[in-house]
Computed example of a mutant assay.
Amino acid sequence: MTERLTTTPAQTVGPFFAIGLPWEDGPFVVPDGTPGAFRIEGSVLDGRGDPVPDAVVETWQADPDGRFDHPDDPRGAVRWKDFRGFGRCATDADGRYGVLTVKPGPLPTGDGGWEAPHLDVSLFCRGVLVRLVTRIYFPDEEANAHDPVLTALDPAARATLVAAATPFGYHFDIRLQGEHETVFFDV
């Protein structure tokens, strides 16, 4: 009897992210009940618009005063209440993620200007060997019109970085490819 061997499907990375990277309170940048806290929720979608169920979304942000509790903050590290500044959430079976946070303050630029309030986002997912990096901006910020990152982008691309307001906070889908692909940065 001759056995026919087949090729194992290629998989460059994972799906280990949802197993090894998240921790229980990872989606809480601030504790539940923090004044001004809201949720940012969305989905990670592949090029066909299908959910990516084994991704991890990380957020890193300034506190409401635009400061970081980190030695690299040129104005000095500052601790704001129980704010940790960092969140990590695995996507569920439908590709959904969510973090509880507060709105960050604007950040100074090296030339005396200001960046609009935003969250820095890293995405880890199957088939991607390095993290993908993007940002989430808020739709109700006048400072978006002068943000050096947003204004450097084509208006259609700019729209992929702005969350939508919802009753619970904000909604932000991350699209890996295709129509309305999220802008990713080479950092």
Rank of each mutant, 00 (worst) to 15 (best):
E3Y: 14
E3K: 15
T6Y: 11
T7P: 00
P15N: 15
A18G: 04
L21D: 08
E24H: 10
G26L: 13
V29H: 02
D32G: 03
T34Y: 09
A37N: 15
S43K: 12
V44G: 07
D46I: 02
D50Q: 06
V52L: 05
D54H: 07
Q61I: 00
P64N: 01
G66R: 08
H70K: 07
G76S: 13
A77M: 10
W80M: 01
G85F: 08
G85V: 02
R88W: 00
T91F: 01
D94H: 04
P106W: 07
P108T: 02
W114D: 08
H118L: 10
H118C: 14
L119G: 07
L119V: 07
L123R: 00
G127D: 07
V130G: 03
L132F: 00
R135Y: 05
I136N: 01
I136F: 09
F138M: 03
D140K: 10
N144G: 05
H146N: 01
L150N: 09
T151W: 10
L153K: 10
A157L: 12
A157P: 06
R158L: 00
L161T: 05
V162T: 07
A163I: 12
T166K: 02
P167S: 15
G169V: 07
Q177H: 07
E179Q: 11
T182C: 12
D186K: 10
